[in-house]
Design a protein around this nucleic acid. Structure first.
Lengths: 232, 232, 232, 232
DNA sequence: GATGAATGAGGGTTCATTCAT
DNA sequence: GATGAATGAACCCTCATTCAT
């Protein structure tokens, strides 16, 4: 941690060492144990989402998972490692879902529309995703930097969008020269800002932005923005 | 306990009461004191930005401001109240700067371009703004809900954008029917997501998104997205 | 905040919730642990007695009990809960001792004499009892109101005195129509005021009321008052 | 303070020094100033009564008296000195009232009855008196030990009761050999215990001892006890 | 695999009191 | 007589983590 953030009295250096126990690391892992692991992950995800990394309490996680706190350490090594596991799980979920959209089999415009709506819907139904990312960024990506798993997940995403843009350009539906990463960031960002800042935006604009009519308006607006931009 | 006995550590419920000391609350406030107040605010802003509300340490704030910790409480009442003051200050800064852009005197397209670039630039140069908002949203907007100051700041923003859209529609540069709030959220969100998630995005896409060339690419992309969408 | 986010110092309202850990609450409680619990209670009793609830210091209790401060919270949850435990212990002790007096087997007059002397002796030998009660009353009985244990202790006391009065009335030794509760309060009060106010009374009357001759005089006076009153 | 109680971080030795400012100490004392002094005393009395010496807050006293905290120190020197002033005021009030009862002009039995009822009534209407005494005794009479005023107040009280007992013995209404101090302590104690412990007694006996019918029953009981005892 | 007991380093907040004006 | 600003020592409580069993 050095001179950067230091939230708790963490007498361990940064978060590197003692990662001895990770899933699939060769331990027998009975079916029951695997269930416990999974339950912890599930509960931890909610706790981290609700309170952020710093605000999350290991006791609360343990209690809600119905296990002794010591078990968290047994299974995951540390709070930070647990957080990383939660993060990886979240990324895996969204990337997996994206691959299941079958965009390749849709008309380009329709495919974009579906991608925009899916991304919005996912953020809406998985609010923990937003909070987890905010936490991880508050911590400068320290945990993700240690992940061996996440990097691989995203080349496929860019390829997916790349193919889509290519098809649209060929068909004349889309302008040329669009960077897949930029487009993805745009699609995600249009919803992310709205949802991540739901409370502050509602406060400053004096209306409840999570009310159905506003949510729908946002989704339509987002779709128009993306398609309007892509129009040649 | 309410107003009855209160012997030991004054368990205040969440953050409501005893806000007796707020700036401009009628106290004479010598010039020196006002400087101390300001320095605390400045330093606190950085600390909250770096570590979030929960992770920020009042000792650190006091030390860096060169005052006794007790003074934080003398001037601001509590950590939460200090956080709110910081938040209000940040909002006031951006809203004030927006009003100084003189968009009304520019060609509509040029005005939008300037607004997009300004918003991006502000987020870039005030990274604390992003973190503060994330913190406040993690806390469900509890602090902002108590602000008497912030609500008033934003009607002017919507009016500003409203006038701009109106002029653009009249001149034939922009499509009709665009909601000023949605547009503002879009403009802000296009940069916010990129900057707020700079670490995770850099990690998953395997490149340093804060490198000059990427930053520039982003700003250009954003401008194109907004103008592309507004095109009739 | 209730069950939502609770990031920093868990402001608990007054003393209600999180009483999860109380003695006999089903935990196995190893023998060693039980000793620690007991030692804490013992030491806390002295500290609360010496300084009152507000003046007592948890650090001092921990230090004198030879445990880490954290353990107080592990075993008792909070200073207030610890205070209640101490209070319950004190009540249990006096009520138990009263039941051991075997008043039922004595001549009524002799039994009253013994009860008066016992009560005086108990207050004299357990000065902490007086201070604890004063503290609890300063706090308007907040802690006792939460006790499930104490209420049950006192019906037996009133029955004991009731039987005694009944026997005395039957034998012609006592007047009829005496209320057991009033009599008990009188017996206790005759000594309590003297002992609780030992310092102020000594000061205003200019003599050391704790000197043996004065203490003896007081006990004799008390006995005469009670028996004089009970005389038919 | 040495090895005794130490409630706050009191860097002054015990409470002896710096008593420079006491009423009537020769200062001009304009009428306005005298009013402020009085208001502070009044308010402090309530605060000390409500919260005890340790729990009382100088800020609260100042605020409620409508003066700057610094003024408390200007007028009374320290919290402890203020407490002593409050205490002396309370003692003066009760002793003065007693002298106004004109017991010398009543039939002895009637005079005792009046004294008992007055004492009860005074404690009932001045609950702060009880709390103040409890505080002072918790602190081992430290403050009163410094009073030059209080000692003188009480010889008159004992004389009053002495005369009364003498008259009663002469008239054949009272037994002989009653010690005035013991009798006074008994009279005071019969009510004090009941009222000082109103909350705990109500809790353990499961009824509200401050309800009118119980209060009345207590007063009658007290009178009977005292007169029963005095009967020759 | 699992549990109760233990730890030490803070965390935010408060208090009586004093200085400079 | 009066005020705003300042102080430093504590106070209660909490947290992530580990030991012994």
């Amino acid at each position: 941690m050095a001179n950067s953030i230091q939230f708790r009295n963490n007498n361990r250096p940064a978060l590197a060492p003692r990662r001895r126990l990770r899933r699939g690391a060769g331990r027998p892992a009975g079916a029951a144990a695997e269930q416990v692991r999974e339950r912890i992950l599930e509960v931890a995800s909610k706790e981290f989402a609700r309170s952020g990394l710093g605000g999350a309490r290991v006791d609360r996680i343990a209690e809600q998972a119905g296990v002794n706190v010591r078990m968290l350490y047994y299974y995951y090594g540390s709070k930070d490692d647990l957080f990383l596991a939660v993060l990886e799980r979240a990324y895996a979920a969204i990337r997996e879902a994206e691959q299941g959209l079958e965009l390749d089999q849709l008309d380009p415009v329709e495919a974009v529309r579906r991608l925009v709506r899916f991304t919005w819907g996912f953020q809406l139904e998985h609010p923990e995703f937003i909070t987890l990312l905010n936490s991880e960024n508050l911590h400068k990506g320290r945990h993700l930097a240690q992940s061996k798993l996440v990097a691989g997940l995203h080349s496929r995403l860019l390829e997916l969008i790349g193919r889509l843009l290519e098809r649209g350009a060929t068909s004349g539906d889309f302008r040329r020269g669009v960077d897949p990463m930029q487009l993805y960031i745009t699609i995600a960002g249009l919803g992310y800002f709205y949802l991540s800042n739901r409370h502050t935006l509602s406060a400053i604009f004096g209306r409840d932005l999570m009310a159905p009519r506003y949510r729908e308006a946002r989704m339509n607006h987002m779709t128009e923005v993306v398609l309007g931009y892509l129009k040649p």
